[in-house]
Computed example of a mutant assay.
Amino acid sequence: MTDRKPDRVLDAGALKALAHPLRVRIYNLLGERGPQTASTLAALIGETSGATSYHLRALASHDLIHEVVGRGTGRERWWELPKGSVDLPGPDEMPTPASRAASQVVMSEFFRLRNDSLMEYLNRPKADQPAEWRDLGLVLTARLDLTPEQMASVRDQLQEVLDSAAERFHGQEDMPGTRRVSMRAEIFDLVDGPDRHHSAQEES
């Protein structure tokens, strides 16, 4: 069983600072594409550099991002995500209505962007992919009948695979031939699925 803990759990103040669709998108782009400036982000999302600069400062004020040391000038600053993993608390973990609303905005935007990136990959023509990167992705779905203990075991195995890969390949962002990839693991019970134990009790 994994004992992995996030490097940072976002508090209510950080969540409120992030709770804006454009800020979530900027934060997500920094994760997907690495360091960016206000100008490069503006070109990516179709906003003015003044708008992206404003949102970057708001994110930086809560240490959600920081300036890249030794890169850029006073006129053009480069920004990146801090190293390490981040936990985004769900609405049910927040103590006030305002913080719960902030968490809802952040979570919904992150998962919308996550789905968008998956659909972009699925719809990308092979001709647009370098030959060495074709057919490397994997999108699988398995439907299993599990007990809570079995689901916890599978979940922890998936987490260990992700943690192992993250540790093994850490620090390769400047290595020639690498490309940023998205690695995901999902396991959850289906709300409308059959509860085998409950059904058996009802039928007895």
Score class of each variant (00 low, 15 high):
Met1Leu: 12
Thr2Trp: 06
Asp3Lys: 10
Lys5Ile: 14
Lys5Ser: 07
Val9Arg: 13
Val9Gly: 05
Val9Met: 06
Ala12Phe: 04
Ala14Asp: 07
Ala17Ser: 15
Leu18Phe: 14
Ala19Ile: 10
Ile26Thr: 01
Asn28Leu: 09
Leu30Pro: 01
Glu32Thr: 11
Glu32Asn: 03
Arg33Lys: 13
Gly34Cys: 04
Gly34Ala: 03
Gly34Asp: 01
Pro35Glu: 00
Gln36His: 14
Thr37His: 03
Ala42Pro: 06
Ala43Thr: 10
Ala43Gly: 07
Ala43Met: 08
Ala43Asp: 15
Ile45Tyr: 06
Gly46Asp: 10
Thr48Pro: 07
Ser49Tyr: 11
Ala51Val: 13
Thr52Asp: 02
Ser53Ile: 00
His55Cys: 05
Leu56Glu: 01
Ala58Met: 12
Leu59Asn: 05
Leu59Met: 11
Leu59Trp: 00
Ala60Arg: 01
Leu64Phe: 00
Leu64Asp: 00
His66Gln: 15
Gly70Gln: 03
Arg71Ser: 11
Gly72Met: 07
Arg75Ser: 06
Glu76Arg: 11
Trp78His: 02
Trp79Glu: 00
Glu80Asp: 04
Glu80Trp: 08
Leu81His: 05
Ser85His: 05
Asp87Leu: 12
Asp87Thr: 09
Glu93Asn: 06
Glu93His: 07
Pro95Ala: 02
Thr96Arg: 10
Thr96Asn: 02
Pro97Ser: 13
Ala98Gly: 01
Arg100Ile: 01
Ala102Glu: 02
Ser103Tyr: 04
Gln104Glu: 12
Gln104Asn: 02
Val105Ser: 08
Val106His: 00
Met107Gly: 03
Glu109Pro: 13
Glu109Ile: 05
Phe111Leu: 13
Arg112Leu: 08
Leu113Arg: 04
Asn115Arg: 08
Asp116Cys: 09
Ser117Gln: 11
Met119Trp: 08
Met119Gly: 01
Glu120Gly: 01
Leu122Met: 11
Asn123Leu: 08
Pro125His: 06
Pro125Ala: 00
Ala127Gln: 15
Ala127Met: 11
Asp128Ile: 04
Gln129Asp: 08
Ala131Ile: 13
Glu132Cys: 04
Arg134Leu: 01
Asp135Ala: 13
Asp135Lys: 04
Leu136Pro: 00
Gly137Leu: 02
Leu138Asp: 12
Leu140Tyr: 06
Thr141Ile: 04
Ala142Gln: 14
Asp145Ala: 15
Thr147Ile: 03
Glu149His: 10
Glu149Pro: 02
Glu149Phe: 04
Ala152Pro: 03
Arg155Thr: 14
Asp156Arg: 07
Asp156Cys: 02
Asp156Trp: 04
Asp156Lys: 03
Asp156Met: 06
Leu158Ile: 10
Gln159Lys: 07
Leu162Ile: 06
Leu162Val: 09
Asp163His: 07
Asp163Cys: 03
Ala165His: 11
Ala166Gly: 05
Ala166Leu: 07
Glu167Gly: 06
Glu173Ala: 09
Glu173Cys: 01
Met175Val: 09
Met175Gln: 12
Pro176Trp: 00
Gly177Pro: 04
Arg180Asp: 02
Met183Val: 12
Ile187Val: 14
Phe188Arg: 07
Leu190Arg: 09
Val191Lys: 03
Val191Glu: 13
Asp192Leu: 04
Pro194Ile: 14
Arg196Met: 08
Arg196Val: 08
Arg196Ser: 08
Ser199Asp: 12
Ala200Arg: 08
Gln201Glu: 13
Glu202Met: 08
